[in-house]
């Protein structure tokens, strides 16, 4: 039997376009990056599927990538997203309007145009 892997759980959700996050069983803290234990109280964490909505805290437009696998997705819009679920994540925006990304704009999890194995976002209205 494979050993349970907290990173793989997040990645599996991403592959299905679902935003799986962890919440602390003891203190309800939601760390953005998956972890083995709560970084606040050191207690155990449980998984939940979070609503994919949030806002852009910062963003950048990548004009080059060192990984040729991603070249066809240039320009890549990298964004730090503050999720309504209470955590922050760094991800990429997809969709034809992604270059209009700006700090403060709302985003939602992308269902279309996805190319990463992890959860990606799109500009919301």
């Amino acid at each position: 039997m494979p050993v349970p892997d907290h990173a793989a759980r997040f990645q599996e959700g991403g592959a299905e376009g679902r935003l799986l996050l962890q919440r602390c069983v003891s203190c309800a803290h939601v760390p953005g990056l998956p972890r083995i234990a709560c970084p606040r109280c050191f207690g155990p964490l449980g998984w939940f599927e979070a609503p994919g909505t949030g806002r852009i805290v910062s963003c950048a437009i990548l004009r080059r990538t060192h990984n040729e696998q991603f070249e066809r997705h240039l320009p890549i819009v990298l964004a730090l997203v503050r999720l309504d679920a209470g955590a922050e994540l760094i991800s990429t925006l997809v969709g034809p309007d992604r270059l209009e990304a700006a700090i403060g704009r709302p985003v939602d999890v992308a269902r279309e145009d996805r190319w990463s194995t992890l959860v990606q976002f799109r500009l919301a209205d």
Binding site: A7, N67, T92, S116, L118
Partner: peptide, 28 residues
């Protein structure tokens, strides 16, 4: 570990991408 697991699949542009986020935040 976090960069391999959670950033590399985004073609994140290496350190340039991350510090672009820092600069954009500082500017805003």
């Amino acid at each position: 570990p976090a960069m391999g697991d959670y950033l590399a699949p985004h073609g994140f542009g290496g350190a340039n991408g991350l510090f672009a986020l820092v600069e954009q935040r500082h500017r805003a």
